[in-house]
């Protein structure tokens, strides 16, 4: 599976189809800092995948390796069965970056034409500007475009080579709600054609709304990988809050159904999918009082899965896919 021969005769009936992205044992260190600590990931053609995680989780580092912009410290990365650089030079992969990557002194149309001229195979510039919704500002200098317009230009540039894999690195950072919605509208419209998309974001609602599959990253590791509803199911539990003097954390962790335990002075917080059982136990077997049970949102799940103060227990739930 590591090397897929792309010769014309070697794909009988598409059976030996290569994965869009295949990552095995990826490690990436910057000096003594280990940004990615062993990621394995397969993305099949046509999937729309969200990389979700807080800053420093390793999202952008992983994307840079997939794009061939940096070399792995250890591990293998292939894109459609090729080295990232080979896939790029064939126009199979393109990316929309968060910032930069534009020349202020060119116009929108010139920037697109410049980019298009570098590829062997491209869509017509006018068509792509249309699809990105920037035909009407084609003659405007890039330096005079708003942040949202520049982001649409980056998107247009990424579409020019008609890539099989489109990578978006936090593409809507700094956009207002309306800009974000119309940007995603354009992407969604585009991916209806079966393009593989991988996007990094720290907006949960974006991952939820636009991805078939959500991969949660934390400290350079994948902590959850599933469909949006599977990730939501992980988040479906409730939080039981109680006042308990001299709480024994290890004892609380042993409560059947307790997924995560936090002790803050006399207050204990227990996350669980079976909050009734936890509440019953607390009331019957301990001195707990002032019980409160509250539902946990996706936001909380995200924080629980990616924050520092929960170790081990949440991870094991998350990585079970």
């Amino acid at each position: 599976m590591t090397n897929v021969n792309l010769g014309p005769g070697s794909r009988p009936g598409g059976a030996a189809q290569s994965l869009a992205i295949e990552i095995q044992g990826l490690h990436k260190s910057f000096g003594s800092v280990e940004a990615v600590k062993g990621i394995n990931l397969n993305v099949a053609p046509g999937e729309v995948v969200a990389f979700l995680g807080p800053n420093g989780a390793g999202k952008t580092t992983t994307i840079d390796v997939i794009l061939g912009l940096s070399q792995p410290t250890a591990g293998q990365v292939s894109v459609f069965g090729m080295q990232p650089r080979q896939a790029i030079s064939r126009g199979l992969v393109s990316a929309v970056m968060q910032t930069g990557g534009l020349l202020k002194d060119l116009t929108v149309e010139e920037t697109a034409r410049y980019t298009a001229s570098l590829f062997a195979h491209t869509r017509p510039v006018s068509e792509v500007l249309q699809r990105a919704g920037i035909s009407d500002i084609a003659d405007r200098r890039v330096g005079k475009c708003s942040g949202g317009e520049q982001q649409r230009l980056r998107f247009a540039m990424a579409l020019l080579s008609d890539p099989e894999l489109l990578i978006l690195d936090e593409p809507t950072t700094g956009m207002d709600v309306e800009g974000r919605r119309s940007f995603w509208g354009a992407i969604r419209h585009d991916t209806a054609e079966g393009r593989t998309v991988l996007f990094a974001t720290h907006y949960l609602e974006e991952a939820d709304a636009y991805a078939d599959r959500i991969i949660l990253l934390r400290h350079g590791l994948i902590v959850a990988d599933g469909t949006s509803s599977e990730v939501k199911a992980m988040a479906a539990g409730r939080t039981v809050r109680a006042t308990l003097a001299g709480a024994d954390e290890a004892m609380l962790r042993a409560i059947p159904g307790a997924d995560g335990v936090e002790v803050r002075g006399e207050t204990v917080l227990i996350h669980s999918n079976d909050s009734d059982a936890v509440a019953r136990y607390l009331l019957m077997s301990t001195q707990a009082r002032d019980l409160e049970i509250a539902p946990r949102g996706l936001e909380d799940a995200f924080i629980a899965l990616t924050s520092d103060d929960t170790d081990g227990d949440m991870t094991s739930t998350g990585a079970s896919r």
Partner: peptide, 19 residues
Amino acid sequence: TGSLAAPDLTTRRAPGLGG
């Protein structure tokens, strides 16, 4: 004959003269 998403990679090539 592959699935809808199977890209036909054989038509893709790199440009001449390094671009």
